[in-house]
Amino acid sequence: MTAVRISSAVMTHPVRKAQAEELAERLGLGGLALDPDPDGPPSALRTALVAWAAAAPYASHHLVVQDDVSGPDILLDLVSKAVSRFPDEALVFYTNWHARNGSASRLAALAGAAWVRAVPDEFTPSLGVCLPVGVAAEFREYARDSVERHDDELLTRFFRSRGRMGLLAVPNVLEHIGTSSINGHATQGIRLAVCPTDAEDAEPLLRDGWVLEDLDWLPYMRYGEGYVRLAGQENDPDGGRGHHRWQDALPRIGLTEERVRDTVAERMPVDLAADVARVFGAGFAQELWIHCLMLGRQATVALDRHAPEGARSTTAPAHGRLMEAAVSTVGPAGLPPERRPEAGPAQKRLMTEFAWSAIRCGKLLLDR
């Protein structure tokens, strides 16, 4: 096999140049990829094309990191080890805590996996992505004449055109910093990693953890409400970008509303539900619990169907902490963006305890 040689670039805008320089120096990354038209209309893709063109002649793979992240000093070492394991894959080292890919990563963590295949009907998180240099060149050619301004959206279309989505690293060693957005994403509010993980835990997970390839149907939350991504949804006329409320999706996932409601009535802890409702409203409390109930159900299915025997034996302690990290973000991420700042430490602990109470009941929705 060809030896792994990684080059890297930090994509940035002149208004964040100092921040990008500090990041590159601290993490030992390559040079800056500056927006070639900083006074033009906002376009992450414009800068991304500069960053992907910066692959060094010696490189087998190229890592592009955005300027608004923090990461461990050993980031390049972690990426190198992951690339050695998956040399032909597009590897994604950060996933936002909200929407479909975030829920896919959270489900994978609960199932015991350390990598998960990205869904094909949502943007590819692009804060830290590593591609084989040949694939990076193909992406530049694919994107060269595009009118799209979001590199994350075009990455998804590119991967779909190749028939293979990227692999999301479930333990996130990169973290998004700040809520400002040059490209217009500030309305999404606080956006953080779905499974924040320190480098010491991430290393064995990324090296030895198994890959969840098949998600079946996927529960996720959006603006305080629960939804379901259906299997094969990417083939819908709208490219799968529609959102199906969980109640409407039940006939297609083999569940009934009566069964879900009965489980809620019998198992949802009244005191915890009242505490969450007091802060964020009764509607959100119920939606969060039902979402986590379905999440627990699907994690059980994924573990039973797809996990290799003894898959977690060498990473059990780290994976326990990964699961805790995954569940700690489900409540804040599920809130409407304007309410996420209300989730302080006490509220996060409350929502985490509440979420676990539902996840542990997920197996009750399995066929009996």
Rank of each mutant, 00 (worst) to 15 (best):
P132S: 03
A118C: 10
E138F: 06
P204A: 06
I182S: 05
L174A: 10
D145L: 12
L212V: 09
D208A: 14
D208F: 13
R157Q: 13
A137G: 06
A169V: 09
P132A: 00
R160V: 14
G189E: 05
M165L: 11
L174P: 06
L215H: 11
C195N: 05
C195K: 00
D152L: 00
A143H: 00
Q188T: 10
E148Y: 06
D208P: 04
A143G: 07
F159P: 00
R140Y: 04
R117Q: 14
V194I: 13
E203H: 12
A137P: 07
T197S: 13
D121R: 15
G178T: 10
A202I: 12
I177M: 12
T156A: 14
P171G: 00
R117V: 15
A199G: 08
P132V: 08
M165H: 01
H185L: 13
D151W: 05
D145W: 07
W115I: 01
I182H: 12
A137E: 14
L155K: 01
V129L: 10
L205V: 11
W210T: 08
A169N: 07
R117F: 05
A169K: 12
G166Q: 08
G163Y: 07
E200C: 08
A193W: 02
G163M: 11
W217P: 11
V119D: 11
T197Q: 04
V135L: 15
E148A: 10
L174R: 03
A137D: 10
C130T: 15
E122A: 10
A199M: 01
L127H: 12
D145V: 06
V129N: 01
C195S: 04
M165R: 08
V147G: 09
R117E: 13
L168S: 03
S146M: 07
E213R: 15
D198V: 12
V135G: 03
D151H: 11
H185S: 14
A118V: 09
F159W: 08
E200F: 10
T124F: 08
G166P: 15
I190T: 09
G163C: 11
G166A: 15
A193D: 04
L212E: 05
D216Q: 14
V173T: 14
P196W: 02
W115D: 01
P196H: 02
A114C: 15
E138R: 08
S180L: 13
G128L: 09
V194A: 15
D201H: 08
L168G: 06
D145M: 10
A114T: 10
L192G: 08
L155Y: 09
I190S: 05
H185K: 09
A199W: 00
A114Q: 11
D201W: 04
L206N: 01
V211I: 15
R149D: 11
I190G: 05
L174M: 03
L155D: 07
V211K: 01
L174K: 02
L218M: 06
D151M: 01
G189P: 00
L215N: 07
G163L: 12
L131K: 07
P171C: 00
A114P: 05
F158W: 13
L131Y: 07
P120E: 06
N172K: 04
G209E: 07
P204C: 04
G209W: 00
A143Y: 03
D214G: 05
V211W: 10
E153T: 14
F158P: 02
V133N: 08
A136D: 04
W210Q: 09
D152P: 07
L192F: 12
V170Q: 06
A136V: 11
